[in-house]
Design a protein around this nucleic acid. Structure first.
Lengths: 225, 225, 225, 225
DNA sequence: CATGAATGAGGGTTCATTCAT
DNA sequence: TATGAATGAACCCTCATTCAT
């Protein structure tokens, strides 16, 4: 009977918050900015969130939730080298697509990681654990060298991928990250894989007639065959 | 507008700023906190810096300057595999020592990287360029595979090292990062090195009867083949 | 601007206002609280009252009206001492019963007396005038000493009774105020009454074998003379 | 070496607060109003008080402290009727002088008594206890009738005096309250005193050829016998 | 020059009032 | 008419910056 609550308002606020936080930083973002960006008044903001702090928390928590779901799925490790290579690439591409969609909020996380360090750290921990578990399994499957330090390698892989994400965030338009991911996979396969896995990788590479590559999105003429 | 009487005050402020920014975050740090930590009054602060913003800028700029000096020295690339391996490790250790000493300010950078992105990006660019140049030279020297994408690999290496730095920043006391750096070197040597370099690496490893390893600082008994 | 459909709503709001104002204080009471307590919506509130302020005014005015009706009835002064004593006590008891029922709103008045001082003062004036007129008549009837200052005595009596009311407001359950009122009557009879009235009082007291007394509602064993 | 702190500022704020709270009510008083009334800026306010709430607390507490000191001194009860009468009057006059000086803050107390009820109640309790103790002692000395209920009478006296205070607060200029206090003393002496005390009172009255009287501060010509 | 008291713009939050349904 | 979502003025408090000493 009353004016129906704008059902999009809360969503709009969450969206707007991601944008405004990303633009101006968490401290620089005024509640009014966010409310206006969501098309409502400052007062209406408080119909949906207890406080600016609560909004930020929800933005961060829900995003980290989505991230967790994306990155810590615990599938079975493939036993064949080919299956591993294939899964590796497809999971990476899927993840980077997700990250590209989430690029605004990723910038926010950087700036307020301090306050939600526990959450961020928890997420990083999950990621590393997932990676560690995979590497351990791959060692048992004979796809990764026995002498590889799983813990440390997981760390380094996370770091390398993380840098790719940072790179992703600087792009204005959807970059061709498939090439990035192929190169990255190759680096780590050679870095920690057994000969068996490396051989499979080389076969896989031959099968690709040409590929997009390079950090600038420009094609490298050279023989990346 | 004469020269400030106390020439040490400005230095003291810069030092204090690093500490206080690190402790409380850039927004959380009050001008008075910094001035007090530098042993001067809030008023005197403005004899040395135009504004809090100006101080932050100088802190960031000068630190990035020191970083540049540390990381982008352009020495000649060694031509022999053994020399490369040796230089690689020693430069890494030296750099991590420097980073450990700078851990306070590194935390600051994380939190305000947004505002000085141009500076940070410039620094990252320098780092990457340095790395790219090295990789290119090593390719010419036959120590790195010809098909390696220098740009992208530089990025990934930076990322991996960066993660080690993040790890470094979480430590309370000086960690045993020598093991970290050996593992990292091995990963990348295998990842992009030619057979020649990999062989040299394996020889080098044999020469080390035991080494500190693992992300927990605990010693791994086994030699890593 | 037609007549509101629900004529009970305004009454309900007035009732609810007394309660909520009493509970939370005038500033602490939100319009929504009152509307909800009255079983209507915040919006509907404004169909019945121009503003919160207008509601408060009406609450205060109408209560003071009821108070006036209760306290300033202008009956004839009884001419005999016995009749006076009897009427005095019965009127007091009746009034305190009324005040006990009105205890919630009395608390409100205390807190906003400032804003409606004119109303409250008008009421106090009425009370004092009533008292003054009575005392004057009783002087003529020879029941109160001729040298009594009617104005000032009325003030003091009001004050004394007022304190009893304050006491009343602190009680959780209906107190035995009959004893309070007997003691108070005695105090003032002795304080301003002629010997004739005092004698009648003492006779009256003798007729009461025992009485409830004391501020704690506990019975005092001794007969008071 | 710096600008010396305005030593009057805190005092000025306390004074100003009493005034502004009295004028506009506790909720209506803005921090800026108070600061401006004290001749300083809103910001400077917070150099002296944690919050508006803290200021109010201090105003109330310190005033109740002064009140306690004024009203609950525990002197010895005089044993002679004349000494009692004399002390009674002089203490009353002294107290009313104090209250007249404190008239602004007394208005504040009314309006925020709710929040500091514990303090106000404590004070009222002290007052009543003092009165109760006096009445009990005077009973032992044979100056107050044995059948007087000390508790309840103390309550009534407090109420009567309280009304005088209320009256005091309505005055624009220093009223002649000596007459009020003489009348009040007479009322209670007659109301609870023994014949001995009443006789002394009448002697004392005869000794005063004329006295200021009346609630309007106008002189009453006749002796009030 | 140095000090820290003083300033006041600015932001988060509340809630009386309005208005679309 | 009745509803409650939406509005925005107002207020408390913070803190970068200024200024009297």
């Amino acid at each position: 009977m009353s004016r129906p609550a704008d059902p999009t308002a809360k969503i709009a606020l969450l969206r707007a918050a991601e944008e405004v936080f990303a633009d101006k930083g968490v401290d620089g973002a005024k509640v009014e900015d966010i409310a206006r960006a969501a098309g409502i008044s400052k007062g209406a903001f408080y119909l949906h969130f207890e406080s600016k702090e609560a909004l930020l928390r929800q933005v961060v928590e829900s995003f980290l939730g989505r991230m967790s779901a994306q990155f810590t799925l615990d599938e079975k490790t493939p036993e064949s080298a080919e299956a591993l290579l294939s899964l590796w690439l497809s999971r990476d591409i899927e993840s980077f697509e997700f990250l590209w969609q989430s690029r605004a909020i990723l910038g926010i996380l950087e700036s307020c990681a301090g306050d939600y360090r526990y959450l961020v750290d928890a997420f990083r921990g999950e990621c590393r654990n997932t990676a560690v578990r995979w590497i351990a399994l791959l060692k048992e499957n004979g796809l990764v060298r026995k002498d590889v330090d799983a813990e440390l390698t997981a760390l380094l892989m996370n770091g390398a991928y993380n840098e790719l994400v940072t790179r992703l965030l600087t792009e204005r338009s959807h970059p061709e990250f498939r090439g990035w991911l192929l190169t990255t996979r190759e680096l780590f396969v050679r870095g920690i894989g057994t000969q068996k896995l490396i051989t499979a990788l080389e076969k896989d590479a031959e099968a690709r007639p040409s590929r997009v590559n390079g950090t600038n999105g420009k094609r490298h003429e050279g023989a990346h065959r």
